[in-house]
Design a protein around this nucleic acid. Structure first.
Lengths: 147, 147
DNA sequence: CTACAATTGACAACATATTGCCAACTTGGA
DNA sequence: TCCAAGTTGGCAATATGTTGTCAATTGTAG
């Protein structure tokens, strides 16, 4: 009885994630528009910026939980905009190492600054405890489905 | 100090939603594959099945938080598979009313049954209280961004 | 009744995600 | 050292989401 109710709540969490995901992508697109980029490309910039060292496409894709091909395409288009730098990978002849160019770092810093303000503004109505619970649950759910 | 930390947690929640969203779509695709459909189409079937009365494309789109055009395309392809029925709308000559056909209801019932089992299995490790907190937070976040 | 704004479906272009395929490349075991 | 299995980028097809445009339709105000 109680278990059945729990799985219904679980299902509603999932439906809400689908809905909220779309809304958040729109928000990201709005935030990044001024710098001529999109939320998907911003995510790639972020994955590169936050990595400890230059990464290959394949590594970035793993970090992001996306397919390699999706990231490859995004990297290609971001690279055309001059935001990335490539160098040879001593470990693999085909898989170059990718980092942000100077202008890539510049754009990312601006986006990040804007996002921090946005997050501050939009987290006002939530308690830290609730957000931490939410994060913990979401991470545990993710873990259940990761390949 | 404490506020800055909270917005970081908020940001991490958002990143986790992006990641988990992709994983859940894959799950939905796996679950629906056996009935020759996809998670996106299943969502449309669900929106129609759960509506109190037959809906127009535009109404379904509003319920789902998607664009009208996205839903139109999905409705068209689901209709080709014989899962939908259309009838005239007394209120609007162009906007037909859509409901599930007999086989549409059959497929949806099967998918729903499968999903209930899936949700039961996958909610085992979570407390009802945590899931309720999570749902509440996610809904409140959605509310902030809805048009 | 008429004019205008808003809504709706149809069609299109674009962005982004997946899976599949292939050749080049790397890794690990015999 | 050699070979088979696994990984990687490049290319392609498909699915799904967005925004834009247009004509048909509806709703509202004068």
């Amino acid at each position: 009885m109680s278990k059945a109710d729990k799985s219904e709540v679980f299902t509603n969490v999932i439906l809400e994630i689908f809905k909220l995901g779309g809304l958040l992508i729109s928000e990201g697109d709005q935030l990044s528009k001024e710098y001529g980029t999109t939320s998907a490309r911003w995510k790639v910039l972020g994955a590169i910026a936050l990595a400890d060292s230059p990464q290959t496409v394949s590594q970035i894709a793993k970090t992001m939980g996306l397919s390699r091909q999706a990231v490859q395409r995004l990297v290609d288009v971001i690279s055309k905009e001059g935001l990335l730098e490539f160098r040879a990978n001593p470990v693999h002849k085909k898989a170059r190492l990718i980092s942000l160019s100077d202008s890539g770092m510049d754009i990312y810093a601006k986006l990040d600054k804007k996002q921090v303000r946005w997050a501050k503004d939009n987290s006002l109505n939530f308690s830290k405890k609730d957000l931490q619970t939410t994060l913990s649950v979401l991470k545990d759910v993710s873990r259940q489905f990761e390949p």
